[in-house]
C-alpha cells in the first residue's frame, strides 16, 4: 500500500513524523526499531530543538501529568549545534529517513546562523520553533507577533533552499500566522506546538508548574485548528496534537492534514510509530472502521 506524501520540496514514504523532543536527538532509533521498520514506517524524524549554544534546560519539576495529558517544562535542553553536528547527525543520517532539524532561537539572527550552519549538512529540512521568547522584543513570543514571524520566515527562506516548515503555537493570532508563513515562503506548517498550561503541584505551600500541555487531552483543540487552517492556506498542514492511535492519525488526515507528527505517545511506548502505522493501514483496508480501539 502506498502511503507516500508530497510536502512540496520533501517527499515522505509515510505521513508519520516523529515530533520534536520526543525521541531526543534520534540517535537511539535503532535500539527500538529495525532499520527496515524505521524505513517502512517513519516518514521523517524531527530532532529535538537545537540552539547555537548548549542549553542545560529548566530546573525540576519538568513534568506533570494531567487527565489524558502531560505538561512539560523541559526548556529545550540540548547540546548545541556544534555537538549535534559532530556526535549525533552522523548517526541519525544512517537510518535512511529524512532528518528535519528543529531550530530554537531567541533572535532572528540565531535562526539564520543555525540555518546557515546546516547548509552543508545532509539534512532534509528545517522546522522553526516560534514558540520561543524573542529577546529583542522584550521576551514576547515570536508566535504572538505576525510581523516578526514574517521577517523570520523570509530571512530563513533566503538562506535555506530545502524544505522549510514552521511549527505554530496553538495560541495567539494562529490563523494570521499560518497565512503569513505561507506568504513568506514556508513549504509547510506544523499545527501545532503544546498549549500553554498550568498545574498546581502543591496547595500548601502554593506551588505551580507552567509548561506546555500535550497528549490526547489536546487532540480536539488541535484538530479544529488543522481543519480551519487547512482551508485557508495552500501549503501542506502537518497535524500534531494528541495522536495515539491510527484512528487519531486518520482523523487528522481527513481534517486536512497532509502528514502528522506523533509526540507524547512516543514517551508512553517508543514503538508507537509501528502500532499507529499498522492501525492506519488497517483503516485504509477497511478492517478497522468500526473499532474505537484502533
Amino acid at each position: 500500500m502506498d502511503f507516500s506524501v508530497n510536502l512540496g520540496l520533501l517527499k515522505l514514504k509515510t505521513p508519520l513524523m516523529l515530533a520534536s523532543g520526543t525521541w531526543g536527538l534520534g540517535e537511539n532509533l535503532d535500539k527500538f526499531f529495525s532499520l527496515k521498520e524505521i524505513r517502512e514506517n517513519i516518514g521523517a524524524l524531527v530532532t529535538k530543538g537545537i540552539s547555537i549554544n548548549p542549553r542545560k534546560g529548566n530546573p525540576p519539576p519538568r513534568l506533570f501529568e494531567t487527565p489524558c495529558g502531560l505538561i512539560n517544562f523541559i526548556g529545550v535542553e540540548n547540546p548545541g549545534i556544534k555537538e549535534f553536528k559532530k556526535s549525533f547527525l552522523p548517526k541519525i543520517k544512517k537510518f535512511g529517513i529524512p532528518v528535519i532539524v528543529n531550530l530554537y532561537g531567541e533572535k532572528i539572527e540565531e535562526f539564520l546562523e543555525l540555518a546557515k550552519d546546516l547548509k552543508k549538512e545532509k539534512v532534509a529540512g528545517l522546522e522553526l520553533n516560534i514558540s520561543c521568547p524573542n529577546v529583542e522584543k522584550g521576551g514576547i513570543y515570536f508566535s504572538y507577533d505576525p510581523k516578526i514571524v514574517s521577517e523570520l520566515v523570509r530571512k530563513v527562506r533566503k538562506v535555506w533552499e530545502r524544505f522549510l516548515a514552521v511549527k505554530l503555537s496553538p495560541v495567539g493570532p494562529v490563523y494570521e500566522i499560518a497565512e503569513i508563513c505561507e506568504k513568506s515562503g514556508a513549504d509547510a506548517i506544523v499545527v501545532a506546538n503544546t498549549y500553554p498550561a498550568l498545574a498546581v503541584i502543591s496547595l500548601k505551600p502554593f506551588k505551580i508548574l507552567q509548561g506546555g500541555l500535550s497528549g490526547p487531552a489536546i487532540k480536539p483543540l488541535t484538530l479544529r485548528l488543522v481543519y480551519e487552517i487547512s482551508k485557508k492556506i495552500k501549503i501542506p498542514v502537518i497535524g500534531c496534537g494528541g495522536i495515539i492511535s491510527g484512528k487519531d492519525a486518520l482523523e487528522y488526515l481527513l481534517s486536512g492534514a497532509k502528514a502528522f507528527q506523533i509526540g507524547t505517545t512516543n514517551l508512553i511506548d517508543p514503538r508507537s510509530a509501528i502500532k499507529i502505522m499498522r492501525e492506519l493501514k488497517e483503516f485504509k483496508n477497511g478492517l478497522c472502521d468500526k473499532s474505537d480501539t484502533c
Binding site: 523532543g21 519538568r62 513534568l63 512539560n72 523541559i74
Partner: peptide, 8 residues
C-alpha cells in the same frame, strides 16, 4: 529512556 529529558 532518555528521550524527553523530563526526569532531571
Amino acid at each position: 529512556i532518555g528521550f524527553c529529558m523530563g526526569c532531571v
